[in-house]
């Protein structure tokens, strides 16, 4: 898996994680009255597990980092907007340039960074 594919899959995983977290929050149903099917949520969790396994296999270190950061910040990957990390809002040093050669992390908060034009 190329770095680009890895990152794309990783933020898809994060989307799933955010979704699962959201629908399992008791406040969600309380405030919105929206219902979800518990069976479908279980199905989604199985899908999540499959993608996670793929990512762990492709890049164990980055996957571990994602899980660690997710526990810390509630997310493990974030976008760079105007050369700023959107997790900690620190400006990135000029030495950091987007590249497909390696996966880049924030020097300040260590979150995994992704550039979307």
């Amino acid at each position: 898996m190329s770095n680009k594919e890895f990152l794309k899959k990783l933020y898809f995983l994060q989307d799933l994680d955010l979704l699962i977290q959201q629908v399992e929050d008791p406040q969600y149903t309380e405030k919105t009255g929206l219902q979800v099917s518990p069976d479908k949520v279980e199905e989604l969790k199985r899908k999540r597990k499959e993608i996670a396994q793929e990512l762990r296999k492709a890049n164990p270190m980055m996957y571990q980092r994602y899980e660690m950061l997710r526990r810390k910040y509630g997310r493990g990957i974030t976008r760079v907007v105007n050369r700023m990390c959107t997790n900690c809002f620190a400006a990135l040093p000029a030495s950091i340039i987007p590249t497909d050669e390696k996966i880049i992390t924030c020097p300040n908060c260590s979150i995994i960074l992704i550039w979307l034009e």
Binding site: F12, D15, L16, S37, K40, L44
Partner: peptide, 13 residues
């Protein structure tokens, strides 16, 4: 990406 993520939510209900 957005479409996929909205559809994902719809699948749950």
């Amino acid at each position: 990406i957005l479409f996929k993520s909205l559809m994902q939510r719809e699948i749950l209900g």
